[in-house]
């Protein structure tokens, strides 16, 4: 019973913070609300006994991704007035569409499926979620795991290909060229007859 209560509290916090992410006027606030949403989702995962995923979510998303995101948001010079333009203009249509979609999904699922969710089974003592996950990743799902690695590799290549710009006028130094310099490139010894003092 207590778990059900916790679930509803967390669920409410997630929904509220997710709503705030898209309605917050200040992008920094929006990012912070997103942090809250991630954090609460990890709490829900803990309720499902998925402690490894919960910790990863906090470490990776909250710890690394969102902090990076906040940096970027703060460094960008975002004109808030321009972002806000058209919000009220689009709101009625957007709200109608969103409401209709939610209502349709609810009509489809309500009452038919709500009673079928089963609580997670009690796990034996000494059961390690992390170990099970690791075993599955490297045995049954090794193909998918490697594919995910290839997707990341492509992301790296694409990001570099799209952002690396070799400008002709850039004044950057090329260390390999500097190291390769020989005396003959820098100094020219000219032999000439000595001048006589007059």
């Amino acid at each position: 019973m207590f778990e059900a209560l916790l679930f509803y509290v967390f669920g409410f916090v997630i929904l509220a913070s997710a709503l705030c992410v898209i309605t917050a006027r200040n992008p920094v606030y929006a990012a912070l609300y997103l942090v809250l949403a991630f954090f609460t989702s990890s709490a829900i995962w803990l309720l499902l006994h998925a402690e490894f995923l919960a910790i990863t979510l906090v470490l990776v998303y909250v710890g690394a991704v969102m902090v990076l995101f906040l940096f970027v948001v703060m460094m960008l010079d975002i004109n808030l007035e321009r972002l806000r333009e058209g919000f009220w203009q689009y709101l009625p249509l957007g709200a109608t569409v969103g409401f209709l979609m939610a209502a349709e999904m609810a009509a489809m699922l309500y009452g038919r499926w709500s009673g079928l969710a089963t609580p997670p089974r009690a796990l034996p003592p000494g059961y390690s979620n992390t170990k099970e996950l690791g075993r599955l990743l490297y045995t049954d799902y090794v193909y998918a795991f490697e594919l995910a690695a290839v997707v990341l590799l492509v992301a790296i290549i694409a990001a570099i290909a799209l952002t690396l710009r070799r400008r002709k006028d850039s004044r950057s130094q090329d260390p390999s060229q500097q190291v390769k310099a020989r005396r003959a490139d820098r100094v020219r010894l000219v032999s000439m007859p000595s001048e006589n003092d007059r």
Partner: peptide, 22 residues
Amino acid sequence: LTVYLGLELLSLCLYAMVALNR
């Protein structure tokens, strides 16, 4: 899972290739 991973691999490459002429 494999359908989705293949799809993402393909799509990511195509997005980048469209933008290659910056």
